[in-house]
């Protein structure tokens, strides 16, 4: 779960070291044909905020946003475990979910518990809607047939023929999918081998792997492509496979299941087979 530090007009749990304690969210979800179920479990330790929730003056909030369908909605509860349902037709591609605890009403003279020394003894006037705790945000891909744990590479990357007759391959990130553009000469050779099972590992190693390393680098170092479908899918895969803290080189190899090994096996298979055997 990612958390971005911000400057709030009052101390907020989870925002740096503003307050002692924690606000953590476990976030399983189910992608059904008719509905998407969010099933967050809120873990809270801060006596002051716990008390506000108990007294009905604050709530746990899950804010769901889908940029593909103009969807932005908040779900509210005071239960530590809740089940929210969203019609599947309302979501498409990448969905972001942020977790907060917000004041349900104006709270005059709010005195946070376990504050950082800078706030010791201070009181604040908090308004309804003000954030009291941040639990970070997460995202998933709302495609019912798309399993982020077993992603087909074709779900976020495609290979096409370019206008140049020969020369190096190019990458176009401005499409729905990352598009690898091959020269006409390379494309012709690609067409001849792409149906061969044994060639898949070689193609992954020589074309997909370097592209994926570059794409992961783009995700981590640029916000230019945040709206692109490939960005959402690849980000979800990195998160689902817990590869967020791995470097690009290792993360890409994990996603492609060791392309070097598969390439070498593919070469071995092709060199030991006759032409009649290589298509399946």
């Amino acid at each position: 779960m990612k958390v971005n530090s911000k400057s709030y007009p009052h101390p907020v749990l989870g925002n740096g070291d503003d307050l002692g304690g924690f606000f953590k969210v476990e976030f399983p979800y189910e992608l059904g044909r008719e509905e998407v179920i969010l099933n967050p479990t809120f873990g809270l330790k801060n006596s002051g905020i716990e008390e506000l929730i108990k007294k009905g003056r604050a709530s746990f909030i899950a804010e769901v946003e889908c940029r593909s369908t103009f969807f932005r909605k908040s779900f509210s509860t005071r239960n530590a475990n809740e089940r929210f349902s969203i019609p599947a037709k309302s979501l498409r591609e990448r969905v972001t979910v942020g977790f907060y605890i917000c004041a349900d009403q104006d709270i005059k003279g709010y005195r946070p518990t376990e504050p950082h020394a800078d706030y010791e003894g201070a009181t604040f006037d908090v308004d309804a809607g003000d954030v009291l705790a941040v639990g970070g945000y997460s995202s998933f891909v709302a495609e019912k047939s798309f399993d982020p744990l077993r992603p087909p590479v074709s779900s976020f990357m495609s290979i096409t023929e370019g206008f140049h007759h020969e020369g190096p391959m190019q990458i176009d990130y401005d499409q729905e999918k990352i598009t690898v553009v091959l020269s006409k000469a390379d494309w012709k050779n690609y067409l001849e081998v792409r149906g061969q099972k044994a060639a898949q590992g070689i193609l992954h190693g020589s074309i997909v792997f370097p592209t994926l390393v570059d794409a992961i680098y783009k995700i981590r170092n640029s916000t230019d492509y945040e709206g692109a479908n490939w960005y959402g899918r690849l980000a979800a895969i990195l998160e689902a496979k817990s590869l967020e803290d791995k470097d690009e080189f290792e993360a890409a190899q994990r996603i492609l299941d060791n392309p070097a090994t598969r390439s070498l096996k593919g070469i071995d298979t092709l060199t030991s087979m006759s032409d009649d055997e290589i298509y399946d």
């Binding site: 911000k6 709030y8 909030i61 804010e63 908040s74 309804a128 809607g129 003000d130």
Partner: peptide
């Protein structure tokens, strides 16, 4: 919106 989730407010607020 950076500090206040106005999406959670009731209509009057």
């Amino acid at each position: 919106y950076g500090t206040k989730k106005i999406i959670t407010l009731d209509r009057a607020s």
